[in-house]
Design a protein around this nucleic acid. Structure first.
Lengths: 184, 184
DNA sequence: GTCGATATCTTACTGACGGTAAATACTATG
DNA sequence: CATAGTATTTACCGTCAGTAAGATATCGAC
């Protein structure tokens, strides 16, 4: 059923109607409602699947790399490519009106961010630094990746590799690595 | 008229209907359509205003600071507080279904990001480094700020000051400042 | 095999909303 | 007062989320 929903989204775009999804699943609307609840519930479930895939792909991607820096590049690139593969699904789960979208976006972000946060907290604790930044950092990184992905998917012609390199440099070395610059 | 729309959004939330906006403006629906066009046009116009305010507030905030690093903290904090002040408006312009929301989110981001991008490019050119990263970095930073703001507005109880400090540290020094960590 | 009960699916409906066309009130000019 | 033209409203259409009532199938009892 969720698979059918994904097929319908892939075919008809993020603005697909429940009726379309039902048709794609070979049933009628009330069946969809009985199985997955209202639209927001469906979105939540699909967001969960997407988050799982992102985390899964990231894990697979960084397994081959050895240094933290190359792992970072691999993770970013994996994120770009996974979202490119599920473009409409990504738009579907991040759309939806008002309060609800905020909740779901945060949930999606939170799922992706949790591994990052745990590890960042552990690493900082291990080196005797404040782990309190971990949660904020995780959301920051996920938000960054989401926006960059959206931009890359929609407006950029650069290869994923290049974009991933750029973002990794920012994320790894920061703006301060050249001390003469900063926001004006 | 746009002011009335903002009042309606503030009062009734991001899911406000055009009829509500018209009522708030003391007119009827077709007048709204005649003056600002369809819902997406309205959203675009309000996104522009919000972007202007963000840039304006950021400029004001960093004027008092001297070092790049403190300017960065001030900019982030200004972003958090400005979006907190316009929470519902922020949710309104970043919602909306499907393809359309992507366009507008990118536009909003692009507006906020433009000053950042120009300056980053200039600074990097001045120090003999590749300025090609500038555009990607701008979107990255804006996405980061948006997500952190959303999280902070919705789920965090920490003061803006602390969050701004955390994010500034990430953005200024990067993940690599302690070389033992990195994504797993 | 037939009848009745229960679970399952579908058709049909409601309410809300975005967007627009037709109707109406208003104003200016002769 | 009449008429032309404009501003505004009322009334409408199509679409869609969500649900209730009706139809159909399944299964047990006799």
């Amino acid at each position: 059923m969720l698979d059918a929903a994904e097929r319908a989204i892939r075919r008809d775009g993020a603005g697909v109607s429940i009726d379309d999804i039902a048709r794609e699943a070979g049933v009628t609307k009330p069946i969809v409602y009985a199985q997955v609840g209202k639209r927001t519930t469906l979105s939540d479930a699909l967001a969960q699947r997407l988050a799982d895939r992102l985390v899964e792909a990231a894990k697979r991607a960084i397994k081959k790399r050895r240094t933290p820096r190359t792992r970072l590049v691999a993770m970013i690139r994996s994120n770009l490519e996974t979202l490119a593969e599920h473009r409409e699904l990504f738009l579907f789960v991040t759309s939806g009106s008002s309060e609800d979208m905020a909740q779901r976006t945060l949930y999606l972000a939170g799922q992706s961010a949790k591994p990052l946060a745990e590890q960042t907290a552990a690493a900082r604790t291990a080196t005797g630094r404040d782990p309190a930044v971990a949660v904020a950092w995780s959301y920051a990184i996920v938000g960054m990746l989401n926006m960059v992905s959206l931009w890359w998917l929609t407006e950029s012609a650069e290869p994923a590799e290049r974009v991933a390199d750029h973002i990794a440099e920012l994320l790894w070395s920061g703006l301060g690595s050249d001390s003469s610059q900063g926001p004006t």
